[in-house]
Design a protein around this nucleic acid. Structure first.
Lengths: 126, 126
DNA sequence: ATCGCAAATGCAAATAATTGCATTATAATT
DNA sequence: AATTATAATGCAATTATTTGCATTTGCGAT
């Protein structure tokens, strides 16, 4: 009798929470595979879609070629990424928050983005 | 004798300029394929990487599942995308520009992002 | 508890994207 | 024009991701 894997959603959320980092879909699959070797890749990919659509996890493009996922439990944070050296800087939350509020007001739009990433050149590389 | 395709870079740039839109790597490959049926997919994918790295094209995540490429000839523009209905709104350039300048100043960082995308809920869907 | 439905999963096949390595083109130099 | 070095391309194999469809699970209604 084949033991059927329980819903992967919780496991994905645990994995992302534990890592507290930006993981690609492949990395997530590999991590979970260790615990549930029989789990099908499509199940994980579909679970990621589901979680993202329902707003439980976020998807970001950090310029590494593949998108990365992260838990939305962690608080909002925003990055500057240097396209030359790859360094990742954290932007002040208030600075971004103020901008967001202004955009929300002038566009009657409720912003959900909680991981803003801006690309460019850092002070060392300009 | 096999006719070798000339550099695809120019063709990609032409394609993106003509379309003046956001195309996925697959769409770009399909478009070019019509003109150069013998062209290898890896050549296109590598050309896209090359063009992006050298700053001739940009890559954006519009929440459709695959990243989209566009020409950097077109001027900067920024979007709000509703996660519920999918509508795409354009944000005022000045509003964003002002924020960018502030971030640049306080972080000594030169922002290159020319296509900011914020996700959330539009006025109809909140 | 049973039934029925919708959502989640497995599985296999199809696509898409990437990689390593050999080959060919391009441009610079002589 | 030949020579060399570098970058671009092709090709085949690999890996990653997606899709269609059958099956199974879980939940609410009966």
């Amino acid at each position: 009798m084949l033991m059927r894997a329980s819903s992967v959603d919780q496991i994905i959320l645990e994995t992302l929470a534990k890592e507290n980092a930006h993981l690609t879909s492949g990395q997530i699959y590999d991590q979970i595979r260790v615990r549930l070797p029989a789990l099908n890749p499509s199940t994980v990919y579909r679970a990621l879609e589901r979680l993202a659509k329902s707003g439980k996890i976020s998807i970001s493009d950090m310029g590494t070629g593949s998108e990365v996922y992260e838990s939305l439990e962690n608080e909002a944070h925003h990055h500057l990424i240097c396209q030359k050296c790859g360094r990742v800087y954290t932007i002040n939350n208030d600075e971004v928050g103020q901008f967001f509020r202004e955009v929300e007001r002038s566009n009657q739009f409720k912003i959900k983005t909680n991981h803003l990433i801006l690309f460019g050149l850092c002070s060392h590389c300009q």
